[in-house]
C-alpha cells in the first residue's frame, strides 16, 4: 500500500472502530427490539423461533390498566422532579451568583450526590426513611410528632424527594454557568437605568438564560425517564404499583414475567414518549433562542 492511499484511508481507519461498535451494540439492538416487539417471544427461545403476532403486544399494553398506571406514575414522577428541581436549582443559582470566597468548594460539594451510584443513593435514602431506625422518623419522634410511613403511603413522594436531593445540583451548576456567561453589557445597562434586583432577574436574567434553561430541563427530563436503580432499591416499585415507573416495569416484564415481546413493545412506547417530548422541547428552544437574541439586540441598541 502506498503512502498516499494510506493517508487517504486514515480518516476511515480512525472512524471505523467507533462506527462498528455503535452499529453492533446500539443500532442493531434497537432494530432487534422493534422487530421483537411484533413477536410472542420468551427468554428461552431465539427471536427467529418466536411467532409473529403483529400488533398484539401493543394492543395488549394499550388496554392494560396497570400499564396505564405505570405510564401515569412515570409522567407524574418526571413532571414533579423536573419542575421542583428547576425551581430550586435556578433560584439557588440566582441567589449564589455572587463573588464569594470558596465558591469552587461549594460547587464541588454540590456535585457529590450526582456522582455516586444510584444504587447507593437508593440505599442511603431507604435507610433514612426506615420506619424505626431512619433519621426522619427518629427526629419526628424526638420532637413529639407521629412517625410517617414514608415508603408505604407516601412512597412516590419519598422517591421524588430522593431524586430532588440527587439532581437539583445539576440544574444549579448549569444555571450558574449560564448566569456567568450572560453578556455583561446588558446587565450593566439595566443597572444604570436603575432596575431593581427583582426587575433585573425577571426582565433580563431569566429571559436571557431561557435557552440554556430549556436544554437543561430537557436533559433532566430525559434522565428522569431513565431513573430505575434508586426506585428499585428504595421501594421495588411498590407498594402496589405506586412507584413502578416504566423503566422498572420493562425490566420486570422481561425478567419476572418472561415476556420479552411485550417488554420490547413497552420499550418502544417509552421511546416514542421521549421522542415526542424532546421534539417539543427543542422546537420551543428555537423560539426562545430567537427571542433572547432579539432581547439582547434591543438592550444593546438602547445603550
Amino acid at each position: 500500500m502506498s503512502t498516499a492511499t494510506f493517508n487517504r484511508l486514515t480518516p476511515y481507519l480512525f472512524l471505523a472502530p467507533a462506527v462498528v461498535i455503535m452499529a453492533l451494540a446500539l443500532l442493531y439492538p434497537l432494530g432487534y427490539m422493534i422487530y421483537g416487539s411484533f413477536r410472542a417471544w420468551d427468554p428461552s427461545q431465539a427471536l427467529g423461533e418466536s411467532t409473529f403476532v403483529g400488533l398484539a403486544n401493543y394492543v395488549t399494553l394499550w388496554n392494560d390498566p396497570s400499564f396505564h398506571e405505570s405510564a401515569g406514575v412515570t409522567l407524574k414522577f418526571a413532571a414533579s422532579v423536573v419542575s421542583v428541581e428547576m425551581f430550586i436549582g435556578v433560584g439557588l443559582a440566582l441567589l449564589l451568583d455572587r463573588n464569594i470566597r470558596g465558591m469552587s468548594v461549594l460547587r464541588t460539594l454540590f456535585i457529590l450526590p450526582m456522582m455516586i451510584a444510584p444504587v447507593v443513593v437508593g440505599l442511603i435514602w431507604r435507610y433514612m426513611y426506615h420506619p424505626s431506625v431512619g433519621i426522619f422518623n427518629n427526629t419526628l419522634k424526638s420532637l413529639g410528632f407521629e412517625s410517617i410511613d414514608w415508603l408505604g403511603q407516601h412512597a412516590l413522594l419519598a422517591v421524588i424527594l430522593a431524586d430532588i436531593w440527587q439532581w437539583t445540583p445539576f440544574i444549579f451548576i448549569l444555571s450558574l454557568a449560564a448566569l456567568q456567561s450572560l453578556p455583561r453589557s446588558a446587565l450593566e445597562a439595566a443597572r444604570i437605568d436603575g432596575a431593581t434586583a427583582w426587575q433585573q432577574i425577571i426582565h433580563i436574567k431569566l429571559p436571557l438564560m431561557m435557552p440554556v434553561l430549556i436544554v437543561t430541563g430537557l436533559l433532566r427530563l430525559i434522565d428522569a425517564f431513565k431513573v430505575l436503580e434508586v426506585i428499585l432499591v428504595m421501594t421495588e416499585g411498590g407498594p402496589g404499583l405506586s412507584t413502578e415507573i416504566l423503566a422498572l416495569r420493562i425490566s420486570r416484564t422481561a425478567t419476572e414475567f418472561r415476556e420479552l415481546g411485550v417488554a420490547a413493545a413497552m420499550s418502544n412506547y417509552l421511546l416514542m414518549m421521549l421522542l415526542v417530548l424532546t421534539v417539543i422541547m427543542l422546537a420551543y428552544n428555537r423560539v426562545q433562542e430567537y427571542r433572547a437574541a432579539r432581547a439582547i439586540r434591543i438592550i444593546e441598541e438602547d445603550i
Binding site: P29, Y32, L228, A247, L248, S251, L260, S267, L270
Partner: peptide, 14 residues
C-alpha cells in the same frame, strides 16, 4: 435519550 431499560430486552436477546 435511550434509557438503559430500553436496551435491556434486545441486548439480553442478542
Amino acid at each position: 435519550m435511550v434509557p438503559p431499560a430500553v436496551l435491556l430486552v434486545p441486548v439480553f436477546g442478542l
